[in-house]
Design a protein around this nucleic acid. Structure first.
Length: 322
DNA sequence: TCTCCTCGAGATCT
DNA sequence: CTCGAGGAGA
């Protein structure tokens, strides 16, 4: 089920399929001084079927709490045992609580234009976004920072990036209570910990991303062994890959070639000796099933160049131990 | 070189 | 959702 919103007419549409939420704010990876960390408890995981039962937000400036907002919310029906066990929130507790429509205007006012922070932020943002459209007739467009995403960049080696795991690793006391206010407080501690960690270690996330994005090239791969079998067909031959290999990733294949004394290259030229053909099906932009590398190789072969076009299976046979 | 595209795999939230 | 692998085009 999806919700769509037209800002011109203010019209809201419900339908089947995926929500686009096209007015959602951007997911940032910044460390900022002033923000609002928040958390929701809900009756389940799906914003189109489930409802918010607790909401909490903490306004932080320069590392200190300057304002807080929190409330239980009556969803208009009985919540099930699973959620009560998980959160400790009971139907008695929700009986006198206000409805979401009573809370939302003041809550959104509290959020203002500030950047929002949450763990797995898309979960909370999506719930809030949909509720804003239904009850306020306008989307939630605040940019936000996801502490889980941040954690994945800064602490890649953790077994997982659940809030609990990160709290434990950061030696922040208390575990996830599944109550909005305490969880929000823990997310705030997590964020400040990572901010301090990045500053102290001179880590800039933007640089981290940039480094990863520098396009991987097989031509940068060098041999890790030094005694080559000079009779191997790849010895001192130039090898190029096209398409996705089934049995291994390109990096592994290129390393094997390099260790056989071969030379890996990124593009097909008149010096190329072998073009290894992977699967090209997945690429929609290839209409005739042939990549530019393959077309060029066929052209060169017709012109009499010393180039062979081989399938993955042939390639695997060639690199197999004898 | 750089930007933009598609696809599949994997993870987290209640 | 986000990321990585891979391709195309400027």
């Amino acid at each position: 089920m999806y919700i769509s919103f037209d800002p011109q007419t203010g019209k809201i549409e419900f339908g089947t399929g995926r929500s686009t939420r096209e007015f959602k704010g951007k997911s940032l990876l910044n460390f900022i001084d002033e923000y609002i960390v928040f958390d929701l408890e809900t009756t389940g995981l799906d914003p189109s079927y489930d409802d918010i039962i607790e909401i909490a937000a903490i306004h932080i400036k320069s590392g200190s709490v300057i304002a807080e907002y929190q409330s239980l919310i009556n969803p208009g029906y009985e919540i099930d045992e699973f959620i009560t066990n998980l959160t400790g929130i009971t139907n008695e507790m929700l009986y006198d609580a206000p409805g979401i429509q009573d809370i939302l205007p003041s809550f959104i006012d509290f959020l203002g234009d500030h950047i929002l922070i949450a763990h797995n932020a898309n979960f909370d943002i999506n719930f809030l976004y949909d509720n804003c459209i239904v009850h306020l007739g306008k989307p939630l467009s605040n940019d936000f920072v996801d502490t889980m995403r941040l954690g994945r960049w800064l602490f890649k080696d953790l077994p997982n990036h659940k809030l609990d795991t990160m709290l434990e690793h950061f030696k922040i006391c208390g575990c996830v209570e599944h109550r909005a206010h305490t969880d929000a407080l823990n997310v705030y501690r997590c964020y400040e910990y990572m901010k301090k960690y990045a500053t102290e270690n001179g880590i800039d996330i933007k640089e981290l991303i940039k480094k990863k994005k520098t396009h991987f090239k097989v031509s940068n791969i060098t041999a890790t062994v030094y005694n080559f079998d000079e009779s191997h067909p790849f010895y001192q031959k130039v090898v190029v890959f096209t398409g996705a290999l089934e049995k291994m990733v390109r990096r592994e294949a290129a390393q094997i070639v390099a260790n056989l004394g071969g030379i890996c290259a990124d593009t097909v030229t008149k010096n190329t000796n072998y073009l290894v053909l992977g699967n090209l099906d997945y690429c929609k932009t290839i209409r005739d099933g042939k990549s530019t590398k393959l077309k060029k190789a066929e052209q060169l072969k017709l012109a009499g160049a010393d180039i062979e076009i081989i399938s993955e299976n042939v390639f695997l046979d060639m690199i197999a131990e004898r």
